[in-house]
Design a protein around this nucleic acid. Structure first.
Lengths: 227, 227
DNA sequence: CTGACGTTTCGGGCCACGCCGAAGCGTCCA
DNA sequence: TGGACGCTTCGGCGTGGCCCGAAACGTCAG
């Protein structure tokens, strides 16, 4: 379950139960202990209860544990590598998340296709840029150049605003501690990349795989490193 | 047990058993699992079998786990804080080790009281200086100035060599990944600091505590931060 | 060679944990 | 308002883990 939550997203109890392959009641008890132990927090929402890691340090710890204990039973090994795939690239409901998601967004920002978020990114100790103020709201806008570039790629976009831009929605990627594109534009971009065959969905779970074509075109067309 | 080994030293099975408060047989089985799991390595030596952490990353993981899981049962809490004391400052047989041990050695080097180890220390990612070549032998020498300063403090030293220095022995501090003073001079210095009342031994275990006097004098006399 | 010592192996007991199905509770929707 | 749904609580079961004492093994010292 912690591996499933390792990407920082909030998942409902039922999903975690099926991810873990146990009964709902078992999952519920287990999750209660995780909450009690301070590893996980719960956010009730209607009749769902969303669980998420209590903080990024928990994700790092779990990742370190997984790295140091690869000699797990067969079953766990499969899930493990699945978890890593999820970490690399995944969908967040309908848009891109994970390392790939933030990489795409970073490339858009770097190339001036998206503006906004001034001063929100800072260099972390390990050379990664992280959010300096995770809670603060930020206005991102798709620039006319960005609109043109995405349209060129065949992304289905709404027309430009009166002032020649397009407001964007974003999500915070917990473990990555960075923003990635969401909302209508995020969905359209993800759809298009899947339709182009640069990405494809994994058989199970929310992981997304970069195809051979994607590995070639994503750097060329969007300046995204797919490593 | 892992906490007890957290400082990187090798301990025999019996010691680990009493540290953990379990029977020797229990400890043996548990240690076998730790070895099997790759967390610990074993070095037979006569009728003893010394166990040590498989690597510094294991120590870091354990420390992270302990930091993230402080809500342990009472018993474990006590041992926990004891482990932290051990980590901060301890004796390594007869000389100083732990953060204090490496801090003292670093201060001696910085102030020119000890020479040698050129290029062996480098800045790590997190700003700590670590050994760049852990396995390499290094020649450290106590300088005449160092000899005078330590003698001034009342440390019982052998006379200077013909060439006006004094060869030093050192140990590698596993988790700290740095050198600290050992050998005859290391023992004499530790003895003197204990005799001066700047340090005192903990009731149990190998931990050493910095006294009120030590907190005042160590920075002044040796330029050692006792934080 | 013999006894002391440190360690591991073996056999066995106990408790906790993980697990489940059924039942109860709150929420959403027709 | 009733029913479907998501989740938790409850009672109970079985396995596995942790633990111990006794015995076996290897090593060291007299």
């Amino acid at each position: 379950m912690l591996l499933a939550l390792g990407d920082g997203r909030a998942l409902p109890a039922g999903t975690l139960a099926s991810e873990a392959g146990v009964a709902a009641s078992t999952a519920s008890e287990h999750l209660a202990r995780l909450v009690d132990g301070g590893l996980v927090t719960v956010h009730p929402q209607g009749r769902h209860r969303y669980y998420r890691l209590a903080g990024p340090e928990v994700g790092r710890l779990i990742e370190n544990l997984a790295r140091l204990a690869p000699a797990a039973p067969v079953r766990s090994l499969r899930e493990d590598s699945r978890a890593y795939a999820v970490r690399r690239a995944r969908t967040c409901y309908d848009h891109l998340a994970g390392r790939l998601g933030v990489a795409v967004f970073a490339a858009l920002l770097r190339d001036g296709l998206v503006t906004g978020g001034d001063g929100i990114h800072r260099l972390d100790d390990d050379g990664e840029d992280r959010l300096s103020a995770p809670g603060r709201d930020v206005d991102y806008r798709l620039t006319p150049a960005g609109h043109a570039r995405l349209a060129e790629l065949g992304v289905d976009l709404p027309p430009l605003d009166g002032d020649g831009g397009l407001p964007l929605r974003y999500c915070v990627d917990w473990t990555e501690q960075r923003h990635h594109l969401s909302g209508r534009v995020g969905r359209a971009l993800a759809d298009r990349l899947l339709a182009l065959g640069w990405l494809k969905r994994a058989e199970r779970g929310r992981a997304v795989l970069v195809t051979e074509a994607g590995r070639e075109r994503l750097p060329a067309e969007l300046g995204v490193e797919t490593g």
